[in-house]
Design a protein around this nucleic acid. Structure first.
Lengths: 144, 144
DNA sequence: CTTATATAGTTGCACATACAACTAACGACC
DNA sequence: GGTCGTTAGTTGTATGTGCAACTATATAAG
């Protein structure tokens, strides 16, 4: 059955991508999730944990513990939100910024390499097809 | 950058698929991993834990604990391997077989539904492109 | 203002996952 | 037939993940 084959290939492609991400980021002592979180932060205002929940599409309890570990590793800091005493803002430390930038460069490069078996037009086709597949997901977030 | 876009869409497609799998299998009290394991088992000879490690592409310690839980749930049984005293064979219980068959039917149906936004020819294109992307993975396992 | 509801975040519990260290048994080599 | 490297499986430790219950604060309703 064809649709089973598509299903299987999406899972395989994810494994391929995910495995590559682990390898690259491991050199910087980061997991893919930690790297995703660092990408959403800055050294100034930072973000609330709830913001990260929405950006990373994970449960708030996951974010709590993720930030716990990044804080232990001195890559981020929790600072009280000035406008809401319930909330905390998470900001990058200088070490965290440096770590993220190095990881980002290596990760970008690895993506280009891993995609290099597809031509630009094939990559374009793939994007179009996957967007069509995921269209049901986007119904709610596409207002007009 | 185009390759970043492909990367992002593969992750999004995986999230879409994985979320759907969770929802469907949850009705049968199974996680996607547990379901994958049940699909590899039978009621007769079964499989060794090591076989499952290779089939599921996870660490052997993951398989140990996965089978622990399936055994607690009475869906599988460990039986000693007659030919190798180090090994154990994992077989489905009648309950496990019944559970798997029901889950399988629902899962198959849901895959067809989730793919239904793509035409057959689009699905075919997607398979071709993803196979090309994953070609580096298959180098080792493609003898001729 | 008080009450009721909603939101921000943490914690307990369960499952998935990898890596490393370990035990037990297999196999090969002499 | 002992010794030694290999393999099967388990266990400890760390991370990621979701759900549910909980605390504290904010906000709306009256």
């Amino acid at each position: 059955m064809l649709s089973r084959h598509v299903y299987a290939m999406i899972l395989e492609a994810f494994l391929y991508i995910d495995d590559g991400d682990h390898r690259v980021l491991r050199q910087f002592g980061l997991t893919p999730t930690q790297f995703s979180a660092l990408k959403q932060l800055d050294v100034a205002d930072g973000r609330r944990l709830t913001d990260l929940t929405e950006l990373l599409l994970v449960d708030k309890s996951t974010v709590t513990r993720l930030i716990d570990r990044l804080e232990q590793a001195q890559l981020v800091r929790r600072v009280p939100d000035p406008d809401d005493r319930r909330a905390q803002r998470v900001v990058l430390t200088p070490v965290g910024l440096e770590c993220r930038e190095q990881a980002r460069a290596a990760h970008e490069l690895s993506i280009v390499q891993r995609m290099s078996d597809l031509s630009a037009s094939e990559q374009q086709q793939l994007v179009v097809l996957l967007e069509k597949l995921c269209a049901p997901l986007r119904v709610k977030s596409t207002p007009s």
